[in-house]
Amino acid sequence: MAVVINLLYIIASVLFIFGIKMLGHADTARSGNRLSAVGMMIAIVATLLYGGLAWPMIIGGVLLGGAIGAIAATRVPMTGMPEMVAIFNGLGGLASLLIGVVEFVKIYTVKGGVETYLTNLAAQSGVTVPAWFAALAIALTILIGGITFTGSLVAWGKLSEKLPGQPISFPGSGILNILLLLTAIGAVVTFTIAPSGACALTTVIVLISAALVLGVLSTIPIGGGDMPVVIALLNSYSGIAAAFAGFIILNNVLVVAGCLVGASGLILTGIMCKAMNRSLGNVLFGGFGSAAGKAG
């Protein structure tokens, strides 16, 4: 069965590639999007071929999430679409974050800690990985998923005018951001070295908190007009988060599709900046400059 599943994953990946390619041209964009939707369907069906799944929860979850998504997507007015995309993207990041948390809880609660976890993982996936690798993948998924989640929520707030559109910054926000990033990196390193044991829970809580706050603080100094670029960048992040989640559970369609989105999203972000005659650095850090200018 594993062979069939992986062949279906290859088909899904090819459909994603064609989908992204066709989305970039006016006359093929709509069929490109549908092609990539078919790819997603194939990837989901293939995953369901793995045995031992909790069917009632799977059916319930897909129906619940699918219904919410369908209602939101069909009801939103045309002008509200970019902020809708921001929310969807945020939820994708949150899903990756939670996958990281699930795998952490497995390591934390299983008897025998990370060694038993790795044995179970090898039995399920057929791939043996070093403990540090699994831990690093979990930590990075949580970090990038968390930044994507709250960053996207702020972008949504700014676009829907629930948050003030102008750049919000305060004295020392740049230093605070750097400190937060260092804390997050420190937590990633600590967890990679010691994924199970007494400190692991604290490390993960610190990591989640730092990621969530970092998402807010890195987005809030950017003006509402630049939000489309920010969403494109956060979309790239959510792809990278999905790719790292793929490294945790050793699933190749997650790695390939996540990476495609991560890389193409980054290029699209660059193109969008260029269309506005701005550099990415100017968009991301322009808010700091303008606040400093006002203060001076």
Binding site: A29, I44, M81, A242, G265
Partner: peptide, 18 residues
């Protein structure tokens, strides 16, 4: 730009497999 961003955002929902 916006549809492409939105379409690739849908692909990043591949986290559903995880």
């Amino acid at each position: 730009h916006t549809p492409l961003m939105s379409g690739s955002n849908a692909i990043s929902g591949i986290a559903i497999v995880g």
